[in-house]
Write a protein that binds this DNA or RNA. Structure first.
Lengths: 223, 223
DNA sequence: CAATACTGTGAATCAATATTCATACTTTCA
DNA sequence: TGAAAGTATGAATATTGATTCACAGTATTG
């Protein structure tokens, strides 16, 4: 006998694996899943196509991992924003803002995660992703109803509708200016966009809070 | 010279063309665009694969036409529901109900039109489709604001968010029980579904109207 | 160093469909 | 009727991109 896995080789393996994941992630951010072929990933990671299969059994597996990783980070942020024992409306407000701002900050990724047509296998992960958000909202709404902070309603329908409105208004086909992918922008353009983005977040916040509470936003009295 | 197009040949041509479109439509309703290969369409229409290309230059063109046709019908129905000079809230209510009931009545088609991952060419048509809905809502909201029947808001954001919540709650990945495609249902199951469907429409209606008006639904006083 | 077991390579293969095309059949009309 | 123009056929071809594989390269240990 003459070979055994050692720390060094394991580390090396792992580092290549990470390099592949990073390369795939970058490609997705830049052009979405459709743009990220195995050949492109390999080229970007600086290895041969075949080598990819030494680390991931198939394309689906690779991208599923990319998707879940990117996704988990987003969900965590929203979960973070939603937690606490404040008034349910405040928590919802934080959640919506967090989701919206992050999506607008990296539209390419948001589009890939939320809206891009993708391989069915990855689409299953997306289902989990959306469900994760919906679950967060659902729990919050239940909670709020129990505590008398929100009117009675169907938590499941409301949460699905919330996810839908966020997705569509921010990164779906109806999102304002969705074809700006690889554009380089001047400083002035960035500032202008920042302002319209703020307005967008605000309008959306209003939509969501009114939908859930049935009262005008902004409210007359603070919570 | 010895041949010229005649009424008879033209009629025959047209009838085959329609037969192809109908076959494609049926396949889409049954299993979505992914299920509808050219071979399948040809088989269903009772002609050879190659013959399809005598009538449509490419698959994209064929399905684009199928999509637009199916789509136009849906949009027209909602446009019909939205028109009139009633209070804007009533008109919105009719529109949402129309959209929702129709989607639930034929989920397969709704899924294909709204949510299924499809060929990019067809996806452009989908963009128009969603925009057509959004446009209807947007006009309605503008109108309502002018007449003082709706509070001031961003009509574009609100309308996109409305489209998103309808799509997601009814046929998106979060829609309840979306995997029932070719199932045959017993009578009891159909009745049960009818009830949950009604509840779903109602909850969604509430969500949409509250979002737009900022007041509780159902309202205390009729309009 | 030799033997062993793994890792990397990238051109060749595979798979799934859309699309073409040589051939055979139809229709039209002088 | 038969030459002209069209239409139908479906097996063969083209395309795209994932996946494999025979071979070459690298670590590891005795």
């Amino acid at each position: 006998m003459a070979y055994r896995e050692t720390d060094k080789t394991r580390a090396r393996r792992e580092s290549i694996r990470q390099r592949i994941l990073a390369a795939a992630h970058v490609l997705v951010v830049e052009g979405g899943f459709g743009y990220a072929s195995m050949t492109a990933v390999a080229a970007r990671a600086g290895i041969a196509t075949g080598s990819l299969y030494k680390h991931f059994p198939s394309k689906s597996d690779l991208f599923s991992e990319v998707f879940r990783h990117a996704t988990q980070k987003e969900v965590d942020k929203v979960a973070m924003a939603i937690q606490g024992s404040d008034h349910a409306v405040l928590r919802l407000q934080r959640a919506v803002q967090t989701f919206a701002r992050r999506a607008l900050k990296s539209r390419g990724l948001a589009w890939a995660l939320i809206a891009e047509p993708v391989d069915p296998k990855v689409d299953e992960d997306r289902l989990h992703y959306r469900q994760a958000y919906a679950k967060l909202f659902e729990t919050l709404i239940h909670d709020g109803m129990l505590r008398g902070e929100l009117p009675q309603q169907s938590a499941s329908v409301t949460s699905a509708a919330l996810v839908g409105s966020l997705a569509e208004a921010l990164v779906g086909p109806l999102a304002p200016g969705q074809r700006q992918w690889l554009e380089t922008n001047t400083g002035a353009e960035c500032i202008a966009r920042q302002q319209t983005d703020d307005a967008l977040v605000d309008a959306l916040l209003r939509f969501c809070l009114q939908a859930v509470t049935g009262t005008p936003y902004p409210r007359e009295a603070p919570l």
